[in-house]
């Protein structure tokens, strides 16, 4: 039994089928890239696994537990963390508070925990350590809304890591980053993988995705086109035909 299993996941918006019977497996500790052209259903796939949209058919199972169709905050507590395609911090909170939100979750549902101090020194240490890990150690007192995009991407990850996730889903973390920032991101992802974190990565930049991933799933028009090790995908004629030939250019164009 794999750690994460997507089983025939299908999502429809009205008459539009955004995801159509997609199945794949992720083993514990793997980093799996999900690639495909615009509108292929990558973000919808994340939403379905996180519980943000309800699948019409099929399900996603994390470590023996169905996660699709459950409220996102329940999944968050169960260790499903994600970042968003459009960087989405708590704008009005400081960088440190952005991370503290996730760290407090264990107490939020206990009755007596409500009035407890958020800034317990253990939490603050952990928040600062996480921010240091992603390279935001210098910006902890700033309001998140004031950060440049590259830092926002890193903050998104730190905030997700605060949930001590068992599965981390990253939605285009490299979009809009400069080369040095992208290198730092790549190093961070490798470190996280070494620590044994299971990750799903949606990425427009196919080269980046295939460089860091253990395996890749290729989607097009809501269906799975191919799946395999990065080299297999890269050389798969169908993939080249449908996507890689033009897709890389499209990906580059967005940078």
């Amino acid at each position: 039994m794999s750690f994460l299993a997507a089983e025939q996941l299908s999502v429809s918006f009205g008459r539009l089928t955004a995801l159509d019977g997609v199945s794949f497996d992720v083993e514990r500790g793997q980093l799996v890239a999900v690639i495909g052209p615009n509108g292929a259903g990558k973000t919808t796939l994340f939403n379905a696994i996180a519980g943000a949209v309800r699948p019409a058919r099929g399900r996603a199972v994390l470590d023996g537990r169905v996660v699709s169709g459950r409220p996102p905050h329940r999944n968050a507590l169960a260790g499903v963390a994600r970042t968003f395609q459009v960087a989405r911090p708590f704008h009005e909170l400081t960088v440190r508070d952005n991370v503290l939100v996730g760290l407090g979750r264990a107490r939020y549902y206990r009755l007596g925990g409500l009035l407890r101090r958020a800034r317990s020194s253990a939490d603050i240490e952990r928040a600062e350590a996480l921010l240091g890990d992603v390279g935001l150690g210098e910006s902890m007192e700033r309001l998140a809304g004031e950060l440049p995009l590259g830092h926002l991407r890193l903050l998104e990850i730190a905030r997700a890591l605060a949930l001590s996730p068992r599965l981390l889903m990253l939605d285009e973390p490299a979009a809009g980053l400069r080369d040095t920032e992208e290198a730092a991101l790549e190093a961070l992802l490798r470190r996280l993988r070494e620590q044994g974190l299971t990750m799903l990565l949606v990425e427009h930049d196919v080269e980046f995705a295939l460089r860091v991933a253990d395996r890749a799933v290729v989607l097009t028009a809501g269906r799975k086109l191919a799946e395999g090790a990065p080299e297999e995908v890269r050389t798969n004629p169908e993939v080249i035909d449908a996507y890689l030939g033009t897709g890389t250019e499209a990906g580059d164009a967005t940078r």
Binding site: H73, A76, R105, L114
Partner: peptide, 30 residues
């Protein structure tokens, strides 16, 4: 309460982005 307590942090997070707060483990309802 706002600056120092768990519930204050949850209020601020929820006011900032209700959906994201949920995705960060905040009990939005509460």
């Amino acid at each position: 309460l706002f600056r120092r307590s768990d519930i204050g942090l949850q209020w601020r997070a929820t006011a900032s982005d209700r959906e994201l707060a949920g995705a960060s483990g905040v009990s939005v309802e509460r």
